[in-house]
Simulated scan of single mutants.
Amino acid sequence: MTTSPESQAIAERQLCGLVNGLAQRIAEHVRERAATLGLTSAQATALREMSGPMTMRELAERMCCEPSNATFVVDKLEKQRLVERRPHPTDRRAKHLVLTVEGAALRERLLGLLALDSPLSALTAGDQRVLHGLLEQVVAGS
């Protein structure tokens, strides 16, 4: 059974609307949780993504933004003494971003808050894995 281009376009529009709606709900969730800690959503995203020492470029990739935007966010986090720039162990030209003790503690609080009532918590762990696999497949272009 083949579908018409019109019905295919409608189905794609509906799916795009759902994906966009989910992205908006996740962004709002992050914004609300970040605000309770006195952070912007960009600062919360940076802290969430800093699972270990990394370069600015690595952080920017994880945040899905330009390195200059990540630099602006890290500058603010550094002023709050949540992040430090340290010499990179193998590249003299690069700096490693490292969470301070305070930054690591705040990150843990943030992760706990983000887990509460997450828009994805309505899905079982298995459903989340399936959704992850499907989205990964689409993003990778397979």
Results as ranks from 00 to 15, higher is better:
58 E>F: 05
59 L>Q: 10
59 L>D: 03
59 L>N: 04
59 L>F: 01
60 A>M: 06
60 A>T: 01
62 R>W: 04
62 R>V: 00
62 R>N: 11
64 C>S: 09
66 E>Q: 07
66 E>S: 03
67 P>H: 05
67 P>Y: 03
68 S>F: 06
68 S>Y: 07
69 N>A: 12
70 A>V: 03
70 A>C: 03
71 T>S: 07
72 F>L: 12
73 V>A: 02
74 V>R: 04
75 D>S: 12
75 D>E: 10
76 K>A: 05
77 L>H: 00
78 E>G: 10
78 E>R: 06
78 E>C: 01
79 K>L: 10
79 K>H: 12
80 Q>V: 04
80 Q>C: 06
81 R>D: 07
81 R>V: 02
81 R>E: 07
82 L>T: 05
82 L>W: 00
83 V>Q: 05
85 R>C: 10
86 R>K: 13
86 R>Y: 02
88 H>E: 12
88 H>L: 11
89 P>Q: 10
90 T>P: 12
91 D>G: 06
91 D>F: 07
93 R>M: 12
93 R>A: 14
93 R>V: 15
94 A>D: 09
94 A>Q: 14
95 K>E: 14
96 H>E: 14
97 L>H: 03
97 L>W: 06
97 L>R: 07
97 L>S: 04
97 L>K: 09
99 L>I: 00
99 L>C: 00
100 T>L: 02
100 T>Y: 01
100 T>W: 05
100 T>K: 10
101 V>D: 09
101 V>G: 09
103 G>M: 05
103 G>N: 02
103 G>P: 08
104 A>N: 07
105 A>M: 06
106 L>S: 01
109 R>A: 08
110 L>M: 02
111 L>F: 00
111 L>P: 07
112 G>P: 09
113 L>Q: 10
114 L>Y: 01
115 A>E: 15
116 L>W: 04
116 L>C: 11
117 D>N: 13
117 D>Y: 10
118 S>T: 09
118 S>D: 12
118 S>N: 15
118 S>E: 00
119 P>A: 04
119 P>F: 04
122 A>I: 15
122 A>E: 13
123 L>P: 15
123 L>I: 08
124 T>N: 13
124 T>V: 14
125 A>P: 11
125 A>W: 12
126 G>L: 15
126 G>S: 13
126 G>N: 10
126 G>V: 15
128 Q>F: 03
128 Q>L: 07
128 Q>T: 08
129 R>M: 11
130 V>P: 03
130 V>Y: 08
131 L>N: 07
132 H>M: 07
132 H>Q: 12
133 G>Y: 06
134 L>S: 04
134 L>R: 08
135 L>V: 10
136 E>S: 15
136 E>F: 13
136 E>Y: 13
136 E>M: 14
